[in-house]
């Protein structure tokens, strides 16, 4: 009996709740805070509510400091985009919290653009990207639950695309402009092994269809079967950096706190900082479904 009691005591000693899940001290060697901008240019569309290209400038914070998960914004940065012939300046907009440029940006294909961001107390960050060529949509249509988009993929070159579909809003709003809203889509088939999904867009790389002409991309959607609508398909020709950034962000989203998922390093292309600078060259194609 004594032995059983002893075993019970020993087991109880080790089985306190604190044993299995407890706080611990780990030397978090958080480096100095860095700038972490998100600059996805060439992405905004004229038929959307906020058509201007915009840049968001954030900064890194020790995770212990951001208790309420508040947005981390740098409001006093100077942001400039330089091409061989021109420099664009971006100013902070208090309403949207983005840095905006007064003019309409115009990018030249195969030209390198450099984004430079300076802010007091932070190291200056820079990143460069080449503006991709336009890849026109040859045809786009809706066939039942599927959107079909036909393109000519560039041969001998790795290409990265973001594909979105917009539908004309049925409810009118009090402006002269006709607005379109993004359509929820899904990957169709298995051809896009390395594709990514953001609910309203498909991220593709041309590994499985490199150089194919009149290539038909099939995308599932969740539109009502009987509903007639006007659509615009938008194909953004983008960069490898963006592809890596976007996929790493999305995977990181569902991998949080899952010990069975390999940890993810969020891709960044800024020197001295984190975040992404990318350029997108878009082509549009309007079509109706009746």
């Amino acid at each position: 009996m004594k032995k059983i009691a002893l075993l019970f005591i020993l087991t109880s000693w080790g089985c306190t709740t604190d044993f299995f899940d407890k706080p611990i001290e780990i030397d978090n060697s958080f480096e100095d805070s860095k700038l972490a901008p998100s600059a996805i240019l060439g992405y905004q569309n004229d038929f959307e509510e906020n058509p201007k290209d915009k840049i968001f400038v954030s900064y890194t914070l020790n995770p212990f400091e951001n208790l309420n998960n508040q947005i981390q914004i740098i409001e006093n940065a100077s942001v400039s985009l330089t091409s061989p012939t021109q420099t664009y300046l971006f100013d902070y907009d208090e309403n949207t919290h983005f840095y905006l440029n007064e003019d309409t940006l115009s990018f030249e294909p195969n030209t390198t653009y450099t984004l430079k961001i300076e802010a007091p107390g932070y190291e200056t960050v820079t990143a460069s990207q080449v503006f991709p060529e336009e890849v026109p949509i040859l045809n786009a249509e809706r066939s039942g639950n599927v959107f079909k988009v036909t393109i000519n993929d560039n041969p001998n070159k790795k290409d990265y695309y973001l594909l979105k579909f917009f539908k004309k809003n049925l409810q009118t709003i009090s402006t002269d402009q006709t607005l379109f809203s993004p359509v929820y889509v899904d990957i169709f088939g298995t051809i896009f092994d390395e594709s990514g999904l953001c609910y309203t867009c498909i991220l593709l790389k041309d590994t499985t269809f490199n150089g194919k002409q009149n290539f038909e991309i099939l995308i599932n959607h969740f539109e009502e079967e009987s509903e007639a609508a006007e659509y615009i398909a938008v194909l953004y020709h983008t960069t490898e950096d963006y592809y890596k950034y976007d996929t790493s962000i999305r995977i990181n989203e569902y991998a949080q706190d899952n010990p069975f998922v390999e940890p993810i390093i969020i891709h960044s292309n800024f020197e001295n900082g984190l975040g992404i600078f990318t350029l997108m060259n878009k082509s549009e194609y309007s079509f109706n479904y009746e």
């Binding site: 914070l61 020790n62 973001l162 867009c201 962000i249 390093i265």
Partner: peptide, 21 residues
């Protein structure tokens, strides 16, 4: 381990705080 957070803007037109290693 998560060692920092920052806010990112993504094509869903969302600002998200992401935890990074």
């Amino acid at each position: 381990l998560t060692e920092a957070t920052y806010t990112s803007y993504n094509p869903n037109d969302r600002l998200d705080n992401i935890e990074i290693i």
